[in-house]
Design a protein around this nucleic acid. Structure first.
Lengths: 357, 357
DNA sequence: CTGAAAGCGCTTACAG
DNA sequence: CTGAAAGCGCTTACAG
């Protein structure tokens, strides 16, 4: 049988159909007796309002889009965290979540999505410094929040990881362990230098924090590949500065780096400490030893972004739309006090990290 | 200004509004001249049909739901692969993808989603042997496909990884390398024994293939935790059978296992070979050496599921709805010929896996 | 080949 | 506190 409509409920309850609507939305006062009859009728008919009709007639459709641009970097281990958290939060707030995933430069796709009128608002992920999506959404007058931020944030609502704290936290951790020379496993020069991207900001904060805390940092631009990471290890070994610690913001290369270190008999953390930035828990646990990480709290960011958006859609947001969330330092086994004997990192023939457990 | 409607287009083109609809859907023949005028008008007004109105009036809303139950296991590295691939494929086929993620036992959530009439069909992920969602969707008469399968697949359309091949492929790989005794790093006894879940099927196929190929397999039930994996390593070391290979179907425990092996100076693959089942590429690359894996092709499965569903929705599917996809063996560095000298795996004091590169 | 019109199931002023 | 009715922007028989 066809699903029950609002008219069915009204008939059963002996009221007009608009009364059923108002009972549902609570937008006008209703006597207790009427409300009870309506509720009983809805329960009996197992009534669920039709989403399309609600969307067409009302101003609120109850659907949010999460735009996840791909092609920027590969699928990393923590991305699902954002998506899952956003989905859950949207649901808790009474919204559905449409996952929208196009190449970041396919602005037309986004444009046609919003012009369909299907979604009440959009959460944008992985903003680039000069992200075109911002203009599209602004022009279409679709409310949106950003996870991440473009260079120009005037009038924009965003939540982002505090990438300045990122660098500082990593530096402080290493300096606290007595390290004086570090090696920054970065990405391509281009991403590194782009104005306000996560990498650029992390790199800058690293440089600043290193400067004031007395940690000398050598920057190495590695390809985002396992091979790139192996080459990075060679570069570390060859470095005249003899760094005793590695700070990595290149998940894939880090995998290659760790492999190369193990092959070469270079022990982590005895010979070199490793602090990984923006790495998921699972990936961190797969290495031996597990990696000390400083990562943005993905779930928290996603929840905050959805909350911001929904607050705005429901007209109850007045507070500052900019939120910077501090990254979390999780100390696992890959960071340790700097070697005291000044033995050079990456040296061959070192014994394995057996012993204590 | 408000977005253009079908009436605006009709007026501009000098035709009736139904003609615009038909021009769009192609459900009746239209003269070339008319079609051109309509198209020009649409282009000029930058017209996009309203999704809610289309959904309300027509039978097709153009939205698919992907139900991702959480709480079953944690976020593993390859889950995003399924979600991303499904999203892309849906879009390619002209549908939106609603991500729906509830605890697997929250059948009511699913029920109310479909009774809203928002979605044309549903893709279910991670089916359990006696999955309640199947009954709910069947009763609601909502078309759906499954990634994975329950025990009773009568009348059901599903795509699934061939978990029988999974075990066989792993066994053949190891036997080909001369191994005779393996250790199966499994999960809790309960999941292991449940009728037709992936683990149960993989375990069964492992047992069968091992039997006929002459590989003796010792089963170890580890907790799904890093600690569980460390304990598993101890169990391997203590095993009187002295297994020379590990087959793991427990991603989190495997992380602990690999860590424990490294700590103990047990070299992979010289002392023990490791073959990981259902592990993502990134996680596989994070270990040293990178892991040889046999994993279901997540993207392929997701694409097939979406295709099945859409074919059915569009009435163009008549072929068999059951699809079993072979897992992929990727040989990385963790598997090697069995030790010839019969040296016991897990022995302490072994030298690190330095040397060749 | 094309038009006029009913209807999808809601929301929300407008009356009372 | 409640009802009758217009309208949201489409799709699709029904006529011609």
């Amino acid at each position: 049988m066809a699903p029950a409509t609002r008219d069915d409920v009204a008939r059963l309850a002996g009221v007009s159909s608009s009364t059923v609507s108002y009972a549902l939305s609570g937008r006008r006062t209703i006597s207790d007796a009427t409300r009870r009859r309506v509720e009983a009728a809805m329960a009996e008919l197992n009534y669920t309002p039709n989403a399309f009709a609600r969307g067409l007639a009302g101003s609120r459709g109850g659907i949010l889009a999460l735009h996840y641009p791909y092609g920027r970097r590969g699928v990393t281990s923590s991305e699902f965290e954002y998506v899952a958290a956003a989905t859950d939060r949207a649901r808790e707030r009474g919204y559905h979540l449409l996952l929208w995933s196009t190449p970041i430069d396919d602005v037309e796709g986004l444009e046609s999505l919003v012009s369909e009128g299907l979604v009440d608002g959009v959460v944008l992920m992985e903003l680039t410094p000069d992200d075109d999506r911002v203009a599209v959404l602004t022009e279409a007058r679709v409310p949106f929040t950003n996870i991440g931020r473009p260079d120009d944030v005037a009038g924009l609502s965003f939540v982002d990881a505090d990438y300045d704290a990122l660098g500082r936290i990593a530096v402080e951790h290493l300096v606290g362990l007595g390290h004086e020379r570090a090696f920054f496993l970065s990405q391509s020069v281009r991403s590194h230098e782009r104005g306000s991207g996560p990498l650029a900001r992390a790199a800058r904060s690293l440089a600043e924090a290193g400067c004031s805390a007395g940690l000398k940092i050598e920057v190495h631009h590695a390809a985002v590949s396992v091979t790139g990471g192996r080459a990075a290890f060679d570069a570390l070994t060859a470095s005249p500065a003899h760094p005793t610690a590695v700070i990595a913001f290149n998940e894939t290369a880090l995998a290659g780096f760790v492999q190369a270190a193990a092959f070469a008999g270079c022990s982590i953390p005895r010979d070199v400490s490793v602090v990984a930035l923006s790495i998921g828990d699972l990936a961190a646990d797969m290495t031996s030893p597990p990696l000390t990480t400083v990562s943005p709290p993905g779930a928290e960011l996603a929840v905050a972004a959805v909350d911001h958006l929904v607050d705005r859609l429901e007209g109850r947001s007045t507070d500052a739309p900019h939120l910077l969330v501090a990254p979390q330092l999780v100390v696992r086994g890959s960071s340790a006090p700097a070697p005291v004997d000044g033995r050079r990192a990456g040296g061959r023939g070192a014994a394995p990290a057996a012993a204590r457990r």
